[in-house]
Structures are given as structure tokens and as C-alpha cells.
Simulated assay, not measured.
Amino acid sequence: MKIKSIKLRHLKMRMKFDFTTSFGTLRNKEFILLEAVDEMGRSGWGESVAFTAPWYTEETFRTNWHILEDFLIPVILDKKIEHPDQVTEWFSYIKRNNMAKATIEGAIWDLYAQTTEQSLAQALGGTHKKIEVGVSIGIQKSIDELLKIIEQYIYEGYKRMKVKIKPGWDVNVMKAIRNEFPNLPLMGDANSAYSINDIDTLKALDEFNLMMIEQPLGSDDILDHAVLQKVLKTPICLDESINSFEDARKAIENGSCKIINIKIGRVGGLTVAKRIHDYCQTKGIAVWCGGMLETGIGRAHNVALTSLANFTLPGDTAGSARYWEKDIITPEVMVDNGYIHVPDQPGIGYQIDLNAVNTYTVFEKVYSLA
């Protein structure tokens, strides 16, 4: 397989609602859509999950475009690719920039699955035919409003609720949810909003029988998470701290967490995500797939990854209709009573709606050797 051309598109889509976390509020999603075309004219698709500001990691929409255009695309064009794992090796000399790497690597995985006449899930070694999904709920204007939202998602069949928390919006929120929904699978996501000095507040959350607390401390922290996990009954799940296989290995060896959230963009692509999954499986560490407010293309990659055996906890891959009036794939990702069925068609398993893509496209550029 050789990549003869790559098209980058700048898309802008408006979400159905404001999504608020401890680091900011998002309504308009701008992102890069990458189309890689091989010598047979087949297209593989990848999506950048970087935001326009460096809230979540240091990467942004603009830095991703720069890294793709000036470094990653020149490495890939017209090079013979036997397997997508090679792409990770070729990109290894470039430090970090994992979301940019995952954007192009995801498109190569899509093409590889098409070329070998497999679904992306099959190409990755997935075994689940359907995956359990939960939902991530941002910080709301009031607890009453939050409870109404949770009630609606329970009615729709979602298997667990992830509620964003921050100092001042934590213990009282979880207490109210537990009083209203005593048996609800529930977790809190702090997005690094706390420090080790907040240990008493975090210990107070033990009362509410949470599945986990996600990333309570700093994104670059491994040591203090280990200190915190020793005094918490609630499992710590690491998210922003895990940017590589080595981060995962060190966190597990240090006892910094009992669960890991694997996000394809954060770790640099499907190859690294699968490697982390496999290692966690050998160590008895549960994993789940986090979301980054993706469109259908990124969502399709998440579904395929979550088909791997050790994804035993519901992920964040909710249906397309929760986020978008119209997604850019057909059919859209659908949730059926808390489950998404894993596509078995070659590649990502969904068709690209080019009319929708063109509607949302702000700018595009094609790269080729010709």
C-alpha cells in the first residue's frame, strides 16, 4: 500500500449544547479531517481531536496542522506501508504531538483494514460484537438541572454516568446524585482540577461508591497519584497523565491508578493504544475508551478500539445524535439500550457523507508528490 495523496480539511461544527469542564466551555468544534488516498484510489479517514486552545494537552488545532503539513505527511507520501505499526516507528523521531500522529495513523489503519478486507475492529484483534457505552456530562448551572439530564440518559439506556467535577462542584453534587439514584454506575472526572492538598475532599467522595475518580491531580503527575490512591477506597483512573506506553507502565508499577482511560489521540494512535491495552490486560488493570467530542469518524475509531477484550468498562462513545444535528457519516453511530454494535464492514464500517463534510469545511489543502 502506498499513499499517493493526502487532503487536510478544516471543519467547523456546532454542538447541540455547551460542554463545560474544569478547564473551560466548548460549543463550536473546529478540527482537522484527514483523507489519505492510496494507489488504488481508496480513501482512509482520520480525525484530529485537538482543541483550538491548549486546555487538555499542549496540542491545538493549529499545531496539529503544522506538524501534519511540515513533518508527518512528507514521511508518509509514496512510502510502501506493509502494516500501520510501521507508521508509529517512522514518527518516533518526532517528540510528542500525539494527536497529530494519531490523525494520520488512523487513516492508515482504515486503509489497511479495507485493503485486507477486514473491519477495523477485526484488524485490531477485537472480539466484542457490541460495546457498552456511558455518557460524559459537563458541569451544569445547577444540581437540579444535572439530575434531570442524568434521568434522561438513564431512560435512554446509557450504562454509566461520568460527571465533571471541580473544587466547589464535587461532594455536594455526588451526594445529590446518589440520593436520587442509589444504584447508578457513577464516576467523577476532575480533569486535573485538584492538588494533593485537597486530599480530604477527595477522600470524602469515597462515601458515594463511585466506579472511579478520573484524573484528580496534575496531568504530569504520577507520584502524588500513587500517594492518593493508597488512602482512597475509590479507584483512581488516569487520563491526561498517560501519553505513552511508558507512562502507562510506570503508573501501574507505581500504584498510581487501578484503571486507565485510553484515548487514541492522547497516546498517539491505535498502535500505541492497543499496546497499552495489552499490557494492562496482563497486569489486571481495567481500561475503557474516553471521548474527545469526536464526529462520526473519530467515534468509529473509538468503537473499533473498544472491541478489544480488556475494554470491560463502559466508554464515552455516545451516539452521534447526542452531539450533532447531522454527523458526517452514514449511518450515524447509534446507541441501542446502552450498546453500540461494532460494524463488520471493511475499514471503519461507516460511509463518509461528503455532502455534510463539504457543508462544514472551512478550508482544505491537498498534498502529493506529483
Results as ranks from 00 to 15, higher is better:
residue 2 K to Y: 06
residue 85 D to N: 12
residue 65 W to K: 13
residue 282 T to D: 10
residue 174 M to N: 05
residue 130 K to L: 03
residue 218 G to F: 04
residue 346 P to A: 05
residue 97 N to K: 11
residue 17 F to Q: 13
residue 9 R to Y: 15
residue 146 L to I: 09
residue 313 L to R: 05
residue 63 T to R: 00
residue 69 E to A: 14
residue 15 M to R: 13
residue 211 M to T: 12
residue 359 T to I: 00
residue 124 L to F: 04
residue 308 L to C: 03
residue 252 I to Q: 03
residue 82 E to G: 13
residue 142 S to R: 05
residue 226 A to F: 01
residue 189 D to P: 08
residue 353 D to F: 10
residue 105 E to H: 03
residue 200 D to I: 13
residue 54 P to H: 08
residue 97 N to L: 08
residue 287 V to L: 00
residue 178 R to M: 05
residue 159 K to M: 04
residue 102 A to G: 00
residue 107 A to L: 01
residue 228 L to T: 07
residue 316 D to G: 11
residue 135 V to D: 04
residue 105 E to P: 06
residue 147 L to N: 07
residue 181 F to A: 00
residue 130 K to S: 12
residue 214 E to W: 02
residue 368 S to Y: 07
residue 184 L to F: 07
residue 295 T to D: 11
residue 1 M to P: 12
residue 346 P to M: 09
residue 262 I to V: 15
residue 209 N to P: 01
residue 114 Q to H: 07
residue 196 I to T: 06
residue 163 V to I: 15
residue 237 C to E: 03
residue 362 V to C: 10
residue 313 L to I: 15
residue 42 R to I: 08
residue 177 I to T: 03
residue 196 I to W: 06
residue 299 R to G: 11
residue 115 T to D: 13
residue 107 A to K: 08
residue 193 A to N: 03
residue 307 S to D: 10
residue 223 L to D: 09
residue 309 A to Y: 01
residue 141 K to T: 14
residue 149 I to Q: 10
residue 252 I to L: 01
residue 35 E to Q: 13
residue 233 K to R: 11
residue 122 Q to C: 02
residue 295 T to W: 02
residue 182 P to G: 04
residue 335 V to T: 08
residue 267 V to T: 08
residue 257 C to R: 05
residue 95 K to C: 04
residue 326 K to Q: 15
residue 103 T to W: 00
residue 241 S to Y: 09
residue 100 A to S: 13
residue 182 P to E: 09
residue 179 N to G: 14
residue 315 G to E: 09
residue 11 L to I: 14
residue 345 Q to E: 14
residue 17 F to S: 13
residue 337 N to A: 09
residue 191 N to A: 12
residue 136 S to T: 15
residue 81 I to S: 03
residue 65 W to E: 15
residue 62 R to W: 10
residue 221 D to A: 04
residue 310 N to A: 05
residue 105 E to M: 08
residue 79 K to N: 12
residue 32 I to T: 10
residue 247 D to G: 05
residue 221 D to L: 03
residue 97 N to I: 00
residue 119 S to Q: 03
residue 32 I to F: 05
residue 37 V to D: 00
residue 342 V to C: 13
residue 355 N to M: 09
residue 201 T to D: 11
residue 11 L to N: 05
residue 322 R to F: 15
residue 256 S to G: 05
residue 143 I to S: 04
residue 152 Q to N: 14
residue 101 K to R: 02
